[in-house]
């Protein structure tokens, strides 16, 4: 049965159709500047969504990434004033790594559910971001740094290039390394992992560290794009990232998912919000629309599962009748 699995490719089909229609209808949409802006928007949240793909494949999720982003951004911007760009980037990454490690250790080694742990760090990291500079915004002026957020190479926004490179690296990790295999195995059956000699705690902890690093990269892009780090940035960040992952067909139940589809879903998500902006859809209606997309993504998951179930039974029969 060499049929194209529609469910798996649904996101890219929707994206192609949406872009096709918008190309035909709206001349503002098809300008290079607008397309660039879509890709730029897709990248900042999309990078965190890559890490979130790992977490959700593992069967967990992370609510704290918005706060983590704000915190890492504040640390980075604070260091940039005194130390220069490279140490600041390292400090930002270190902040993300440490935050992820804290989440990971609490979840994996103290067995606190991810929901509770990350809800806790969601509040505390946000508060730390406020405390760091007395709730004040830190302005970044280093032009080389700002280029990371606003620049383009050969017409392609730099954030999107970073996004693609990271996506490629993470896709390889997920699909073709022992660690990636273990992450997926965890989402399938933790019990089976334990019997197979997989160090489940280490795998889990590492995934949250990876999430932290992805968030730190997102933080670099957001901070560079806004030319400042403020403690109240990215309030709905976790929501957006999770939506992208689910829209990309990764199952909330864990076990399977695709980095490629997350990338496409990030672009789709940014495209939809761009379209709504182009048609000046009222803010409240935009929210309704985003809510519907999330619902659609979730029910899509469900519907796919339903169809997969039917397919599974038929395949089972096929095999057994060989």
């Amino acid at each position: 049965m060499k049929k194209i699995n529609l469910g798996r490719h649904a996101v890219i089909l929707i994206l192609i159709v949406l872009w096709g229609i918008m190309f035909a209808l709206n001349e503002s949409f098809r300008t290079g500047a607008n397309l660039g802006s879509i890709l730029r928007e897709a990248s900042s949240t999309g990078i965190a969504a890559l890490g979130m793909t790992f977490i959700i494949i593992m069967g967990d999720f992370d609510l704290s990434i918005g706060s983590m982003l704000a915190f890492a951004g504040m640390i980075m911007a604070g260091c940039m004033e005194n130390m220069g760009i490279v140490p600041a980037l390292i400090m930002g990454a270190a902040a993300g790594l440490v935050c992820g490690l804290i989440n990971g250790i609490i979840i994996a080694y103290f067995r606190v559910p991810a929901f509770i742990t990350t809800l806790g760090t969601y509040y505390s990291l946000r508060a730390l971001a406020y405390i760091f500079n007395d709730a004040n915004t830190i302005i970044c002026t280093d032009t080389a740094f700002l280029k990371i957020g606003t620049g383009s190479i050969a017409g392609i926004p730099i954030p999107f290039l970073i996004f693609l490179v990271l996506a490629a690296v993470l896709a390889v990790i997920l699909n073709r390394t022992t660690y990636g295999r273990h992450v997926r195995a965890m989402g399938n059956s933790e019990k089976a992992c334990r019997i197979s000699g997989i160090d489940t705690k280490k795998v889990k902890c590492a995934a949250f560290v990876l999430m932290g690093l992805c968030t730190a990269v997102s933080s670099v892009i957001v901070t560079a794009r806004q030319a400042c780090a403020s403690p109240d940035v990215a309030a709905n960040f976790h929501f957006d990232a999770i939506t992208m992952v689910v829209l990309g067909g990764t199952k909330m139940t864990g076990g399977e998912g695709s980095i490629f589809n997350t990338v496409i879903a990030a672009v789709l998500y940014a495209s939809v919000s761009n379209c709504l902006n182009l048609y000046h859809v009222d803010a409240q209606w935009q929210r309704v629309c985003m809510g519907l997309i999330l619902l659609a993504a979730f029910s899509f998951d469900f519907i796919q599962k339903h169809f997969a179930g039917l397919r599974e039974r038929s395949q089972k029969k096929t095999i057994q009748s060989i």
Binding site: R184, N188, S189, A192, I195
Partner: peptide
């Protein structure tokens, strides 16, 4: 079923 196979792999 629960502790042997990784059903979605």
């Amino acid at each position: 079923k629960d502790a042997g196979i990784f059903p979605r792999m």
